[in-house]
Structure formats: C-alpha cells, structure tokens
Simulated assay, not measured.
Amino acid sequence: MYYNMYRDLVPRIKKKKTINVIGVGTKIVKSDMAVLIFDMVTESIDPFQALENSGRQIEEANSTLKQFGIKEEDIFYTRDELMPSYDQSDEIITYKASTIYRVLFYDMQLLSEILFNVKGAKGRVTEVIFTVKDPVKYYNEALDLAVSDALVKATKIAEEMGIIIDDTPQNITETTNVHDLLMGVSHQHVEDTPKFMEGFITFFATVEAEFLELE
C-alpha cells in the first residue's frame, strides 16, 4: 500500500544559477591608410576665366599626384558651382571656382610629401583621416576580446559565489555603440598640427553575455 504514497508529489528541481556580465574589448592598431582632403580655389573677375583656371588647376593637381605614384582610382575630386563674391553694395566683384579633393594614401611618408606640395601650390588642406584598409578584421578582433573579457568577469563572480559555470555563454548579444564604431576612424586637422604624425586607430566592442551554472 506504500508503493504509490508519493505518486502525487512534485520533485523539487534545483534551478541553475545564471551570471550576466558585460564584456569590453579594445584593439589599437597603427593606421595603414589615410584620406587627405583639400581644396583649391581660383578667382577671376571673368566667370569663364575662373572656370578655365579651375580646369587647368585640376589638370596640374592630377598630374602632380600621379607623378608621386598615386593611382587614378585613388583620386577623387568634386568641382563646386561657380560662386560670385559681392561688395558692400551687392555688386559682383569677382567669381570663385573651387575644387575639393579626396585622395587615398597607403604610404604615410608619401602623404607627408604631398602635404608639403599641396600647401606650396596654395591648396587648403582641411583634414587627414587615418583609418585601416580592413576595419572589419580589427573590429572582429576587438569583439573576440570582449567575449573573452565577459568570460573572465563571469568566472570571477562564479568563484565568489562558490559555483562553476559553463565556459560557453548561454546567450550573448553584441551591444557595441555606433559612436564606438566610428572611433575606428581618426581625424586630424592638419592646419592645427605643426608636425605631421601618423594615426593610431582604436576599435571598441562590447557584448552582454549570460553564463549558466554547471551541475
């Protein structure tokens, strides 16, 4: 008569503990690519002359860049519309034609030489953007570091709790902020930099991870 006395009892199941942590990864690399941005302006009282001078200026700039070994596919430029300049009486006194250049560099020493030549040709260098040819590679490395960081943190917490956790996360979510992703590009305003320096790029990654207690 006793074989079924515990038939309706529900056995107690020990709920496994979980540990939730945030992992952070940082990867710092030396830039292997730079984007030089500069503009060149021509001015004349004759609008047609201003455009003609601008066209000649573009030919000379392209020729100079190619002489330094810059490939044509790495040279981008945009010609702005002809802009009149006015005096205090709202009379047109001159016309300006400007061209904005964006040039890709993979040789930092060559970039230094081009900077000198652009300034000598009365070009206005506005910015140098340092970056890398393969940002995805370095971001993924930062992401791996973030996952490893999460495991280290969870393991430390588990030791303090007196439990052992599974090294493989039960759940993991990439939570990297868009602003942090943009940190993979380093901007340098050349006009404020007396001595040209190469850039170092910092890649950030963050994850939220949940680790489960082992039985």
Rank of each mutant, 00 (worst) to 15 (best):
M1P: 10
Y6T: 05
Y6A: 08
R7A: 13
V10M: 07
P11W: 03
K14Q: 06
K17D: 11
K17V: 12
K17Y: 08
I19V: 08
G25C: 00
I28G: 00
D32G: 12
D32H: 14
A34H: 04
F38H: 06
V41Q: 12
T42P: 11
T42F: 05
E43P: 03
P47E: 02
S54D: 03
E60Q: 12
E60H: 13
F68P: 10
G69N: 15
Y77Q: 05
T78F: 03
R79L: 01
E81H: 03
M83Q: 03
S85N: 10
Y86C: 04
S89K: 10
S89L: 10
S89C: 02
E91G: 06
K96V: 01
K96A: 02
Y101P: 03
R102P: 03
V103A: 01
V103S: 02
Y106N: 07
E113S: 13
A121Y: 07
K122H: 11
K122V: 09
K122R: 13
E127C: 14
I129M: 12
F130A: 10
T131C: 11
Y139R: 05
Y139D: 00
E141F: 00
A142Y: 00
D144F: 03
A146W: 00
D149V: 00
I165T: 08
Q170A: 13
Q170G: 06
I172F: 09
T173E: 10
T173F: 11
E174S: 10
E174Q: 12
E174I: 11
V185Y: 09
H187N: 10
H189A: 13
T193A: 15
K195G: 05
F196Q: 11
T202R: 15
F211K: 06
L212I: 15
E213P: 13
